[in-house]
Simulated scan of single mutants.
Amino acid sequence: MTNSGDFIPDEQIEEFLMEAIEGDGATYGIKNLTQLLKDEHDLQINHKKVARLCKELGILLPQRQGNPKYPKRLVRNRIITAPNQLWQLDIKYGNIVGSRRFFFVACAIDVFDRSIVGYYRGPRCTAKDITGMLNEAIIRRQLQVIDDSNGRHCIVVRTDNGPQFISNLFGEFCEKNNVFHERIPPRSPNYNAYIESFFSILERDLFRRYEFTYFEEAYYEIDEFMEFYNHRRYHGALEECHP
């Protein structure tokens, strides 16, 4: 919970922790990570819960040895000239009014045409949920798994450092499908500006307009919004891509 009384799902706190250990909190123990969550994210949280989440994530100090099988690749500037060159991917959560229940929306946006190429919504959001969504998007867009002997990839996918994206399952999926996965530096949402902008629209045009009283209601409205956004909503920024 925040100091203003808003409930925050554990998944969001886990993302805060992953960002912390990727950045200034790389050498922090439980005590300092707890204080960081209080100071930087305005949370009311105790060290016992932080210790539990760190244990679940496998990021207690003696275990922080990275993942040599799937090394971290930092973002680099890219010139995007066509669809399916770069997708940005992130996760947003909403809540069921009057309860401590949350739902999650994971979306992948094509940087070139600004369309949502795939999305997932559900009461939890795991690496399995996200890789399933990405697999469907790759099939839907008829992308081929390219032989990478010449350094070519099926698609570049850019994410933050959330636990779903640094998991072995996500790494295995990217390797199997020859997806080049790059991660933005901590506290650098501008590197994922297109998906951040979309989530701002989703927050303004959907989450602030409706109070969801049960999950099925939220999922129905999300599905309707995605259909509207991809097929009927006017996208002024696309004028630059399609003169």
Rank of each mutant, 00 (worst) to 15 (best):
T2P: 02
N3G: 09
G5D: 12
G5V: 12
F7I: 12
I8D: 03
E15I: 12
M18H: 04
E19K: 10
G23I: 08
D24E: 07
Y28D: 14
G29M: 04
K31G: 08
L33K: 06
T34K: 15
Q35F: 03
K38G: 07
K38F: 01
D39E: 08
L43W: 07
I45S: 00
K48G: 06
V50K: 11
A51T: 07
A51S: 14
R52E: 15
L57S: 07
L57Q: 03
L60N: 06
P62V: 08
Q63S: 14
R64H: 02
Q65W: 07
N67Y: 04
N67T: 02
P71N: 10
L74V: 07
Q85E: 15
W87F: 09
Q88F: 08
L89N: 05
L89K: 06
D90L: 09
K92M: 11
K92Y: 05
Y93K: 03
N95F: 10
I96P: 13
F102S: 10
F104V: 02
V105L: 15
C107E: 00
A108R: 05
D113S: 11
D113V: 09
R114E: 13
I116D: 00
G118V: 04
G118Y: 03
C125F: 12
T126D: 13
D129Y: 02
I130D: 07
G132E: 06
N135F: 05
N135A: 03
E136A: 08
E136G: 00
R141G: 01
R141A: 13
Q142H: 06
Q142R: 13
L143N: 00
I146T: 11
D147E: 12
S149M: 02
S149G: 00
N150R: 06
N150C: 13
R152A: 12
I155M: 14
I155E: 00
R158F: 08
N161W: 08
Q164D: 04
I166G: 10
N168E: 13
N168T: 09
F170M: 14
F170H: 13
F170Y: 15
G171V: 03
F173E: 00
E175W: 11
K176Y: 11
K176Q: 10
N178D: 01
R183C: 13
R183M: 14
P185H: 01
P186F: 06
P186L: 08
S188W: 09
P189A: 05
N190I: 15
Y191R: 08
Y191W: 00
A193N: 05
Y194L: 05
Y194S: 06
E196C: 05
F199K: 01
E203R: 11
R204E: 14
L206H: 01
R208K: 13
R209A: 11
R209E: 15
F212W: 02
T213P: 03
T213H: 15
E216I: 06
E217M: 07
A218V: 08
A218T: 01
A218D: 08
Y219H: 03
Y220N: 10
Y220V: 00
E221N: 10
I222Y: 09
F225C: 06
F225V: 01
E227V: 00
F228T: 04
Y229A: 03
N230M: 06
H231D: 12
H231Q: 12
H235N: 07
A237R: 09
E239R: 07
E239G: 05
P243C: 09
